[in-house]
Computed example of a mutant assay.
Amino acid sequence: MSSILAGVSVAVLGGDDRELILAPHLAQLGANVRVAGITKLIGNNRIQYCESAGEAVNGARFVILPMSGIDEQGYIRARYAQKHLSFTRDVIKFCKDDCTIIVGFARQLLKQLIAERGLGLVEIAGIDEVAIMNSIPSAEGALQMAMEATDITIHGSNTIVFGFGRCGCTLARMLSALGAITSVVARKPADHARITEMGMEPMSYSQLPGYIERADIIFNTVPSLVLDESLLRQTKPAVFICDIASAPGGVDFKAAENLGRNAVLAPGLPGKVAPRTAAMILAKVIPDIIVSELANTSSLFSTKEDRG
């Protein structure tokens, strides 16, 4: 059994089915793992279950939060918690001075709390290895939602994808492979060239008026407002809109509701549709991050000693 994390204290807070796999994996690698808000791991003799987040992070060298981090009130998404779990000033004060927080993406409150304590922060959602691999279950989940929400096949449907980043690219390719008439909205000329090379239709945002009315299904991957009321008014009444961008998404959902459009915000699909696959992505990347952070700390300490 590998012991690359032998003796490293790690706290895992909340999450979903991904953490049910990730936490035991870290323990198998030798880490001293404490969890909070994951009642399904009570009784695992390799893991210490804590009643509170403060107890779990106390003395931890690394704190792992869910991909979604914390919300504006400091609450942590914790599917298997028996009570609200939060990461606030009252909790972060228990972290060691050399603690590093590992999270998918950090909202402003989390960044502020970490900066106040001078702790380390690693956001893994932007790492290509994570983002590209996560785009697969995200795209598959979005397709599943579209199939369940519509009375037509993906094949032959007029479909628009907003954004051509890691997730947008994977989703557009899958749609095209299934026979959808796929248009992709992107800003960069290089993206337009790649979209054309892939056999799809590139579009600029200025081309949407007068075209969006053709769409049977719309997918958004852009985490800023791109589908406003004026565009929503031009869509078919029967259109299905699936927004898989991080909250609050890129759709005016209030306007969509008022107009009677079926628009759904669906972040975090990897953990919902393929938690084992998503967990193994994290289980591969996070130990490497921990080892790298420890090596950097050791190198910095050695440098200071040499100078001293």
Rank of each mutant, 00 (worst) to 15 (best):
S3H: 14
I4K: 07
V8A: 01
S9H: 09
V10D: 10
L13F: 08
L13M: 03
G14Q: 01
G15H: 04
A23Q: 06
A23H: 06
P24V: 04
L29E: 02
G30S: 07
A36R: 01
I42E: 15
N45R: 10
N45P: 05
N45V: 03
N45L: 03
R46C: 11
C50R: 08
C50G: 06
R61I: 10
V63K: 02
I64D: 00
L65M: 02
M67D: 09
G69R: 00
I70T: 00
E72N: 15
A78P: 13
Y80I: 09
L85G: 09
L85D: 11
S86A: 15
F87C: 09
F87D: 12
F87M: 11
V91D: 15
K93H: 11
F94G: 12
F94T: 15
K96D: 14
K96M: 14
C99L: 10
T100I: 14
A106S: 05
R107C: 13
Q108I: 15
K111H: 01
L113T: 05
R117H: 10
R117Y: 08
G118Q: 04
L121C: 06
E123Y: 07
E123Q: 00
A125S: 10
G126W: 05
I127V: 06
I127G: 08
E129T: 08
E129D: 12
M133H: 13
M133T: 15
S135A: 00
E140G: 03
L143Q: 06
Q144R: 10
A149D: 13
I154H: 09
G163T: 11
R166Q: 08
R166G: 01
C167M: 00
G168Q: 04
C169V: 10
T170C: 13
L171M: 09
L171K: 05
A172D: 07
M174I: 12
S176I: 12
I181E: 15
T182C: 04
S183G: 12
V185E: 07
V185F: 09
A186D: 05
A186K: 02
K188Y: 01
D191T: 03
A193N: 10
M198S: 07
G210T: 12
G210A: 12
G210E: 09
E213W: 14
E213V: 11
A215G: 00
N220Q: 05
T221A: 04
T221E: 06
V222I: 08
V222Y: 03
V222D: 08
L225P: 05
V226W: 11
L232I: 09
I241W: 02
D243W: 03
A245W: 10
K254V: 05
N258G: 15
L259A: 11
G260W: 01
R261Y: 04
A263T: 04
A266F: 02
G268M: 05
P270Y: 02
G271H: 04
A274F: 06
P275S: 04
R276P: 04
R276Q: 08
M280F: 11
I281V: 07
L282Q: 02
P287H: 07
V291Y: 10
S298E: 14
S299K: 06
S299L: 13
S299Y: 10
S299N: 09
L300F: 08
F301H: 13
S302I: 14
